[in-house]
């Protein structure tokens, strides 16, 4: 099997309100993607686009409304959760919230080793932990017996990566792993992902709103907008030659670290998020510069180009 993780037609709906005035919000709408072994796949988009919901469903924290999730070609069910968590580990956004401030950080490591029966003795457990810590550039002495408050954010994020590596996972789901880390230390985390992919063959589902690091680190990328994947393909294609107007807007909004390349055009922002979610047809129609009549009523189909998928009426004509 060539696909480590496959998501087919995943839909997740949340309902708001009670009986009267009940609104159903579709957070994720029939999205499909797959991840190959030793690949970094990015889900990018703004907040409220459904990328974190997707991660939660894949991790089994939320039940999908419809659609299927296959790990190595086998469907994900509740029974097989242990098998899945051993192969799929997660890294979260805020490293200070990942660990309980009143517990030492290493206790999490010993707990994971015990839960998955990774070692037979204390000595073996220590060696195992030390080996994983070295992968992220830390040593056992540096962290033994310390509390989360004694580390910096960047260090703590490395530690949570080391913890995720304990079970030798095939796939790491990283939900905004660098957004809380200082810009100057961000690259060290992103470089670490590259290194894990190259040296250990770990695949990473990298969820981010930061397209610059996404371009730097990933192989393929999917741009999400209000629950839909609007464009998906190789990162060079999608970010350098975007086809969907939203991908273009997103790419052009990255602030360039060059005062000569300041923005010259002005943009329009959405007024209410809910309005966009409930919109018929293409969700981006409200602020799309190339909007047509069809966009407002008909949901665009997924169009396959040789190297990318685009969900836009602009390209459906021919």
């Amino acid at each position: 099997m060539d696909k480590l993780l496959e998501v087919n037609g995943l839909t997740k709906q949340f309902s708001q309100g009670f009986v009267i005035g009940r609104v159903i919000l579709t957070a994720v709408e029939r999205i499909s993607f797959f991840i190959k072994p030793a690949e970094i796949f990015t889900l990018a988009g703004e907040s409220g686009c459904g990328k974190t919901t997707t991660a939660k469903v894949v991790l089994g924290f939320e039940e999908a409304t419809s659609g299927e999730i296959l790990h190595n070609g086998k469907p994900q069910t509740r029974k097989e959760k242990v098998w899945i968590t051993q192969g799929v580990q997660a890294i979260f956004q805020d490293p200070f919230c990942t660990f309980n401030p009143l517990r030492t950080v290493d206790s999490y490591f010993y707990e994971t080793v015990r839960n998955y029966r990774l070692a037979n003795s204390k000595k073996e457990a220590m060696d195992w932990i030390d080996r994983k810590l070295r992968l992220v550039g830390l040593t056992h002495q540096e962290f033994a017996g310390k509390y989360p408050s004694e580390f910096s954010g960047g260090q703590l994020q490395r530690i949570s990566i080391a913890r995720a590596l304990l079970t030798d996972p095939k796939l790491i789901i990283a939900d905004e792993p660098v957004s809380m880390v200082d810009a100057s230390l961000r690259m060290s985390i992103v470089n670490l992902f590259k290194q894990l992919k190259d040296e250990l063959g770990v695949s990473i589902l990298y969820i981010t709103h930061d397209l610059a690091t996404a371009y730097y680190v990933s192989d393929r990328i999917a741009i999400m907008f209000r629950g839909n994947i609007v464009e998906m393909g190789a990162v060079e294609q999608v970010l350098m030659k975007p086809r969907h107007p939203y991908s273009k807007l997103l790419r052009d909004s990255i602030p360039q670290a060059d005062p000569k390349k300041r923005w010259t055009t002005s943009i329009r922002l959405s007024e209410l998020e809910e309005e966009e979610y409930l919109r018929q047809g293409c969700k981006f129609a409200g602020r799309c510069p190339d909007v047509m009549d069809a966009c407002k009523s008909v949901v665009p189909k997924d169009l396959y180009f040789e190297d990318a998928l685009v969900k836009c009426h602009k390209y459906s004509g021919n």
């Binding site: 960047g154 810009a183 230390l185 690259m187 610059a212 730097y216 970010l239 350098m240």
Partner: peptide, 17 residues
């Protein structure tokens, strides 16, 4: 240390904290 679009060369971060 800032990554740029269209440039995949390896970038280091500020060492230490």
């Amino acid at each position: 240390s800032l990554p740029k679009l269209g440039d995949k060369t390896i970038r280091g971060s500020v060492p230490g904290s």
